[in-house]
Design a protein around this nucleic acid. Sequence first.
DNA 1: TGTTAGCACTCTCCTATCTTGACTGCTAAT
DNA 2: ATTAGCAGTCAAGATAGGAGAGTGCTAACA
Lengths: 334, 334
Amino acid sequence: MNDKLTDRKKKVLQALVDSYITSVEPISSSDIQKRYLPEVSTATIRSELSHLEEMGYLIQPHVSAGRVPSSKAYRYYVDNFIIDDDIDLDAMKEYVARKYDSVAEIVKNGAKIVSDVTNYTSLLMISNSDTLTIKDVKLVDMYDGTALVLIITDSGVIKDKEIQLPTSEDNYIESANSLLGKCFAGKTLSQILSTHVDLDSELNAFKQIFEDVIDLLGEYKKSRDGQLYVEGANKIFDYPESKNYDNVKNFMTIVGKKDKLKELMSDEGNIEFSIKIGAEEGEGLDNMALVSAKYHVKGKEVGQLGVIGPERMDYKRVLTVLKHLGKLIDKLDD
Amino acid sequence: MNDKLTDRKKKVLQALVDSYITSVEPISSSDIQKRYLPEVSTATIRSELSHLEEMGYLIQPHVSAGRVPSSKAYRYYVDNFIIDDDIDLDAMKEYVARKYDSVAEIVKNGAKIVSDVTNYTSLLMISNSDTLTIKDVKLVDMYDGTALVLIITDSGVIKDKEIQLPTSEDNYIESANSLLGKCFAGKTLSQILSTHVDLDSELNAFKQIFEDVIDLLGEYKKSRDGQLYVEGANKIFDYPESKNYDNVKNFMTIVGKKDKLKELMSDEGNIEFSIKIGAEEGEGLDNMALVSAKYHVKGKEVGQLGVIGPERMDYKRVLTVLKHLGKLIDKLDD
DNA sequence: TGTTAGCACTCTCCTATCTTGACTGCTAAT
DNA sequence: ATTAGCAGTCAAGATAGGAGAGTGCTAACA
């Protein structure tokens, strides 16, 4: 991995990727000369191109065609040429302000906004339950010896279910409530599910309730863990790539495979942005790229928002949009 | 619309549709002779075919090709040749029993089951709020003068939100609860939203709460009305039809257009099954068909479940699956 | 040593032409 | 009314030629 590129090689590479991103056609030496490097001859550019090809940055579909960037070139491009300046900030802000007027809607429609603004398919993944804190657990008296279990978190009530009460004593619910609050409040879902609550020594009368509540939490965790929403999967038909049947099928297949997408989106570590490009990622993401960012509500990480599209996507625009939407969501209060 | 077909014409038509459903290639006179009518000559079948074509049942892609059924033929086929016997009942039952073990899951995964078993894309539409009855509305005391509003329906708690209490009087919540129950219990969402609750004459102190609750109900109605889930959109790639780019695009486009799908699914009247075939339905459903059925939980209509796929779909299988799943869901208790 | 002009070479893409095979529609006989 | 036989039509595949695009190489030059 020797990425010592001369200045002119860098320029050529950037020019080629830039051109390709918009035209989606193999780029020839004269294309580059005309629009980016008029001061040197096409022959010179050709020799640079063939050198870059040797180094693995470019691919030539056939001998008399221009060149196309390889995954390595895209990687180099996003690492070196994307200076993430804030050009689109105003447009974004205006967009958000105009179409949606409450934070709840912005969060809910986050994926839609990203998809609309970037014109790529967007992905929204709810963070897994490790980050979710239980604020309180409450029983609400219903009728005929049943009660409603409410699990209240920092983002609202998340699960409710009727359960049978083992007794109809008057203060049973009250006592249970205080005990439940004491045990669960302030903990994360994972903490609760991994620690064994030892109740036998305490009041055995509440054992059933506790088991029910823990079951409920487990159920919720299962249903929520890494839920993934896809928005705008049909954008593929707007790209020239869709003329190729295999591309469409690949794209739709991977967009349908939530597991694979989750795997791609869930990055270890604390990287705020992640960009996965084509072949880099092994099978499944050929000719495609996935850009994703963590996002926060009121300073707390709640999920990841990303974009999946052709490998030659407009990385600058996508990154800008994701970054600003992240900021907007984070800052706003409900 | 003269559908007086001779017995042999019927036989030929059925043979052709049957063949086409499995082969998805134009059917020739000799195909029909070999497999369905060896007792007559191909010439005879040809004359029947050309007669059926005149009548609008068949289409000839070009003069030296076989014939393909028209939408009219499919319509005739489902109306006359589908005797909905219960062949698949056992397989279905086993399937349901094996993979899912609670009703909640069956309902939730209804669309998935249908899609898996039929191998077509399935659609699930939640009935609109006209059929949803409010069982109770409750305020739950939280902290710092806020309360949680719970809207309880016959299918569980459907909406919750924190609101500010106008006062911190001790019995305020209790009084509000009884008043809310009195006003809303037993009514449908639409009833509540369409009738104006005249509170001024009663206790003015609860005015704000009522307005909040009604807002909440309105919000819920909006979010729930005719929600549509699509499962297995990628099945299209399993059909030979997907070799044609336009078919894929059409299919994906209509599957993406939730509004159009809702329109197609929401039948007036009390028809339990509805079958819409291709051109019959005007633009949008070309070369496709949509089969849908209302389904019930505990005897109450909760939505519609359907299948969308190529016009030449296996209607018999689809109808059988939908019918039995409907029965299974309806019968089971929670 | 780096750059350039010039040229031969390669390969895709388009078009035209031909052949083959699959069906049909028609006609005349049964 | 049914059938056999045959001529006619058309899609699809194969083949060939030509145009255009773009490269790699070589030799000359700064």
